[in-house]
Amino acid sequence: MKARRHEFRAALGFLLPNFLGFGVFTAGPVLFSLAISISNWHLHRTIPFRWIALGNFLELLVDKDFWLYSMNTVYLMLGMPVAIAGSLLLAILLSQRLRGIVVYRTLFYLPTFTSGVALMLLWKALYNPEFGALNAAINWCIDTFRVNEVVRALGGAGVSAPTWLLSTKNLFGLEAEQVRSATAQWGLGARDALIIMGIWIAIGGNNMLLYLAGLSNIPPELVEAAQLDGAGRWAVFRNVTWPQLAPTTFFIVVMSFIGGLQGGFEQARVMTQGGPAGTTTTVAYYIYTKAFEELMVGYAAAVSWLLFTAIFVITMINWRLGSKELNY
C-alpha cells in the first residue's frame, strides 16, 4: 500500500508535462467540439447562436451525402489488411543483416517523405487511361490472351482497360448517387486506384518501421530456444515472432482503423478533389468541407462526433479481441 501511494505521486509527476499540454490543446478542444456539436454555430453572424440539442445529428441521419461518403471511407479501407501484412513481411526481410540494408530501408521509406505533388503527378501518369504504363500492360494482356474473343463467345459485351481515376466504377458495383449496387458500375475505378496507391505508399512506410522496431525488441534467447527445439521458419514465426509482435500489431491495427476512418483527406485533396462525382470523397473530407467551406462549424463537429462513435466502438472491439491475446 505504501509503495502504491509512492507510485501514484511519481506517476503524477511523470504525467504532468504531457497532461498539461494535452489538457489545453487536446482534451479542452475536444470537449469544446462536443459542446458545439449540439449547437447551430455558423461563422455567419446573421445566424444567431442557439443550442439545438440533437438537431445536427438528426439532420445527419437523413443526410444522403454523409452516408455516401461513409461508404466511400469504408471502401477505401479495404487495402488496409494487405498493407499491414505487406509491411510485416517487408520488415522481416529488412531486419536481415544484409550488405546495404540501410539503402533498402531508406528506399522503401522514400514514398512516405516524397512530396505529395510528385507522387500525385507520377501516379496520375501511371493511371493515365491512354498513355499510362498500367493500362499498357492490361491492354497487352487483353490482346495477347484474346480475352475479348472469349468473353464475346460467352455472350459478354467485351472488356476494355479501366479509366481508373476518371471512373466511378468499383469492385462492388456501388452507385455514385445511391447506397446500392448496380451491374453497370462493376469494374475498376477511382476508389480502387486510390487503394492500390495507398498500399504502395504504406507498405514500406510507418508501419514497416514500427514492425522493424518491434522485431528488434524480440529477445534473442526466445528465437534460439525455439531453434534448439528444432522449429522451422514458419514455426518460429508462428510461436515466437508473431506473439512477440502482438503489442505492435495491436497498435498498428488500432491506429490503422483510426487513420482509415479519419483518412482519405490528403489523397482526395491532391489526387481527385473528391471526384469523379464525389466517389472519392471521404467523411474527413466532408467534415473539412462543412467547417472550412460551408462554415457550418456546429454541423461539422456533429459529423466528427458521429465518426468518433464509430471509431470508438471499433477500437473497443479491437481492444477486446486484442486483450485476449495480449493479457492486459
Binding site: 476518371l166 471512373s167 466511378t168 455514385a176 448517387e177 471526384g275 469523379p276 462525382a277 464525389g278 468541407t289 467551406e293 460551408e294
Partner: peptide
C-alpha cells in the same frame, strides 16, 4: 456557394463521363 458547387460538380461529373 460551395455547397451548390459540390452538388453541381457531382452531377456534371456524370455528364462529363
Amino acid at each position: 456557394g460551395q455547397a451548390a458547387n459540390r452538388i453541381l460538380t457531382k452531377q456534371l461529373d456524370l455528364v462529363k463521363n
